[in-house]
Design a binder for these strands. Structure first.
Lengths: 144, 144
DNA sequence: CTTGACTCTCCCATCATGGCAAGGTTCAGA
DNA sequence: TCTGAACCTTGCCATGATGGGAGAGTCAAG
């Protein structure tokens, strides 16, 4: 008879230890502890010997956090999003406001980087890049 | 007779203290000390009482650093660039290589951020953003 | 001499993440 | 039952570029 398999990549039986929660969520164990210290997961239960025990709901929340990080939200924003997610009386406008602000931040940062890129590509274009010392890139950095 | 004016925004007479070097270069005094600890400025001379004294050449180098930071180069890259700038036997290819790598880095980061932006704008588009709780943004974060 | 502006060094904080060390726990196999 | 591997714990330090502040010393003008 096959006893419960404990396999990492298979259906886990909950609650799970931190390593398994990490594998299931794609978040490193280090970050799991960190998120806990940021109070993103509420009370994480422990075994008698102190091991953290993650429920299926915890892992769900961790996946939510992971996805939010992948979209570039800061931990402060994610804390807000998780709260809204867990609050059935939220207004979708609150969520949209956070997301819109993040998009605006991204837009600004992208534009700043594109401006750098334009300047640099202009300089690159003028630098012959051989073994001679003359270099319009350095000239620009030194004088602009 | 007007004695030397020491004016911040006028022609300074060198060497200058850190505050004046900061104003002339646009780099904060805090960062001047930091750059010194990174050995970007060589030996900064001191008065008997320990005040730093910046030469005109130092301020020129600081402007170079400032401009490089504004273009997004890391301090490690800037250290290389400053060395090349001060080395008359440099090959412009060395400079171009650094700049090209930086442009490639920027390209990658911009693309990553644009990908985030596309996803987010798609989600924003579907969220009505009113006082009802239904929210496709949260749905996506929770399930994707 | 006093006062205010300036400077000095040192320490701490950011933000999300990784690494390491020293020690305790769990479980499977011999 | 013992042992070793694999796991977990806490705690500290590091990143990169920057800012803030404390406590003390310096300088120049009044």
């Amino acid at each position: 008879m096959p006893s419960p398999p404990e396999a990492s990549h298979d259906r886990a039986h909950f609650p799970v230890n931190i390593g398994e929660a990490s594998r299931l969520s794609g978040v490193s164990a280090k970050m799991l502890r960190h998120y806990e210290s940021l109070a993103l997961l509420g009370q994480v239960t422990r075994t008698d010997s102190g091991y953290r025990q993650y429920s299926e709901a915890d892992v769900h929340t961790l996946r939510f956090i992971k996805r939010s990080r992948d979209l570039g939200f800061s931990m402060a924003e994610i804390a807000e999003l998780v709260n809204l997610w867990h609050n059935r009386r939220r207004a979708s406008a609150s969520v949209k406001r956070i997301a819109q602000k993040h998009v605006d931040d991204l837009t600004q940062r992208i534009e700043a980087m594109q401006a750098m890129q334009r300047s640099l590509q202009n300089l690159l274009h003028h630098c012959h890049g051989d073994d001679r010392p003359d270099c319009p890139i350095l000239d620009d950095l030194a004088s602009a």
